[in-house]
């Protein structure tokens, strides 16, 4: 059962991730990323982090990606860009990410080989310890993230604000 759920959502995540990267229309890319993120949220549940899964859906898909869509529709950029594709860039990108993949594979494959997780218990998925940890050990980073978000709000407002256009007065 668990394996089946994992398989379905892992494949879904991979497939939709490919669509994100390969589709020409950024709106489709965004919608596809929604699918990827929800699949990853399901995997979070399998890993015993239901709180993170709910937050992932709430924050990422419910807010961040809607913001992306909002901006895409506001700018109405549409499909495809003008100008020729740069073949060199494509080849370089494939080469670099493949090399990176090989490095990661060698680093990750050997770790914890054959290790099987024990089934989830109430103790693992409990929320109270998480909250306690967040509000004691990690209180300072927590407050700092709040500050960071405030700074981001101010910065975004300042950046996106229309510059006041002063038209030169016409001579009459």
């Amino acid at each position: 059962m668990e394996v089946a759920v994992f398989a379905v959502f892992a494949l879904l995540a991979l497939g939709s991730a490919l669509v994100v990267v390969l589709h020409r229309n950024p709106i489709y890319s965004t919608m596809s990323l929604v699918v990827t993120l929800i699949s990853i949220a399901v995997l979070f549940v399998l890993l015993g982090a239901p709180f993170l899964a709910a937050l992932q859906v709430l924050v990422y898909t419910g807010a961040i990606l809607v913001l992306f869509l909002f901006v895409l529709m506001l700018l109405n950029v549409g499909a495809g860009g003008r100008g020729p594709d740069r073949l060199g860039q494509k080849i370089g990108a494939v080469g670099a990410s493949a090399a990176f993949g090989v490095v990661m594979l060698t680093l990750l494959w050997g770790r914890f080989h054959g290790f099987e997780l024990s089934p989830l218990t109430e103790e693992i998925v409990a929320l109270k310890p998480l909250a306690k940890q967040l509000m004691t050990t990690y209180l300072l980073p927590f407050e700092m993230v709040g500050l960071l978000l405030l700074a981001a709000v101010i910065a975004a407002t300042a950046l996106a604000k229309k510059p006041e256009v002063r038209l030169p007065r016409e001579k009459t």
Partner: peptide, 22 residues
Amino acid sequence: VSVPIQWYFLLAGALFVIGALG
């Protein structure tokens, strides 16, 4: 019976590579 932990690692690695490619 349960998902081997490598599968998660591999999936995460694959997603990262796809993201880097994009």
